[in-house]
Design a protein around this nucleic acid. Structure first.
Length: 405
DNA sequence: GTCAATTCACATGAAAGAGACCACGGTCTAGTG
DNA sequence: CTAGACCGTGGTCTCTTTCATGTGAATTGACGA
């Protein structure tokens, strides 16, 4: 057996892979040159340039959907800026924080704690009063004369969870500092986000704004070609694969990250088959694999109550005999109560379940719309958002977490 | 027939509570010289 | 005498509950033509 296995590994190593440099297709890779973002790079550079004279650059706010190159562009531009600063001996420091990462920077306290740790110091992950942490941060920043550029990626996430007080406090930092200057660069996926924040914060944080529009199919194609030249062995991509990949991604609001993922998975599938070219079938297959993994992964990582709610939705729809029909909050909740009784789980209130349904909706697992039936009341109309081919798998996942049969 | 008021069944907001974590400082205990 | 174990306190964070308020259109009922 182990002989077989080692043979397999040998064969795997020897088989001509389609990849030359797979890292280029990984999500954390940032390319040396950016395509179709010259204009934005120029604008960011113009806004940030005063920092090289040790003047405070305007706070900058960047919007754009996922995969439009916001993060990469910002990182790219700041790296260049830091290069110049370094060669001139200017004390400029950039800090990059992704506010979406759970347990890293998704609350006010943790954000500041994170900034502190970026500055090479440490505070406990919990236990201190928030203003204490602020004080530590201030003293740390103000110790030397420095110019900080703080990049807050996915800032909409932070505000949604922690409220806009955070931003207000951050924008006030400069008035507390004697020596140093802090400039904030916020990145948001949500275009509507700014409408919901405190006007005071809005004016001070959004001194400058920049919008990243989605890539169109042609631009995506250019990007994919560029990457695939480095990533794949010459000639391993069949005609039309990149074009189709670009077209798929363009259809889904021009998400370049997704397009690149798609290409990578297609390559992995081809590699697994020991094929030495990637064809359209691989791409189609990759598309469904990616989608399947995403959905199953989301479901698997949901808390018990979420899974129970989803299970109740399944049951409610099954009672109606047709899974593509829709049901309403009330019937889901009564079934949910039965399920809880059955499993011995403590049943939550309708209020909470209603929120859970709303959250499942934003995850895309279900589609729920609020409708009014006039005197019949107002409620959510709920449908499953999971493709039928995955129904059995999701039910199995849920049943195993609920220890049901 | 028309129009405003009513009503239903939740949606949505706000505030507050419970319980899990964690750090810190003080006290107790056991081991060491 | 000292290091480590063990509390109590005070803080944050997440998930919930409770209480209150909001909402959109079918229904109702008064009113006038």
């Amino acid at each position: 057996m182990s002989e077989n296995l080692s043979k397999f590994f040998e064969a795997f190593v020897d088989s001509s892979s389609v990849f030359k440099n797979k890292r280029v297709l990984q999500s954390d890779y940032s390319p040396d040159s950016l395509q179709h973002r010259d204009e934005q790079i120029g604008q960011i550079a113009r806004i940030m340039a005063p920092s090289l004279r040790m003047e405070k650059p305007s706070n900058l706010f960047i919007y754009g959907k996922t995969g439009t190159g916001k993060t990469v562009t910002v990182k790219h531009t700041l790296t260049e800026l830091l290069g110049v600063a370094k060669s001139r001996g200017l004390p400029i420091v950039t800090i990059y924080v992704n506010c979406k990462l759970k347990r890293v920077a998704d609350t006010e306290y943790r954000l500041i704690a994170n900034l502190i740790s970026e500055l090479g110091s440490d505070v406990p992950s919990t236990g201190l009063p928030t203003d204490e942490v602020y004080k530590i941060f201030y003293s740390l920043v103000d110790k030397k004369k420095l110019l900080f550029i703080v990049v807050l990626d996915e800032i909409d996430h932070l505000v949604r969870k922690a409220g806009d007080d955070v931003l207000y406090n951050l924008t006030r930092i400069n008035s507390e500092l004697k020596n140093s200057i802090v400039s904030i660069l916020g990145i948001s996926n949500d275009l509507m986000f700014v409408d919901n924040i405190d006007p005071r914060v809005k004016s001070s944080l959004g001194e400058e704004e920049l919008v990243f529009s989605p890539y169109d199919a042609k631009q995506l194609k250019d990007i994919l070609f560029e990457r695939s030249k480095i990533a794949f062995i010459d000639g391993s991509l069949q005609q039309g694969v990149v074009e189709k990949c670009a077209a798929i991604a363009a259809r889904e609001h021009g998400d370049a990250r997704r397009a690149i993922d798609l290409l990578r998975v297609a390559g992995e599938l081809a590699e697994r088959e020991m094929a030495n070219t990637i064809n359209i079938e691989h791409l189609d297959h990759a598309l469904s694999t990616l989608e399947r993994d995403r959905i199953l992964d989301i479901i698997k990582t949901q808390p018990v109550q979420f899974q129970t709610t989803l299970y109740s939705i399944f049951l409610a729809l099954r009672n109606q005999e047709k899974l593509d029909a829709s049901i309403f909050t009330g019937s889901v909740y009564s079934i949910y109560q039965d399920v809880c009784k059955q499993t011995g789980l403590r049943a939550l209130t309708l209020r909470r379940v209603s929120d859970i349904i709303a959250e499942l909706n934003t995850l895309g697992i279900i589609n729920a719309n609020v409708i009014s039936k006039g005197r019949g009341g107002r409620m959510r109309e709920i449908r499953l958002g999971i493709p039928e081919s995955l129904h059995d798998k999701t039910l199995n996942i849920i049943k195993s977490t609920l220890e049901l049969n």
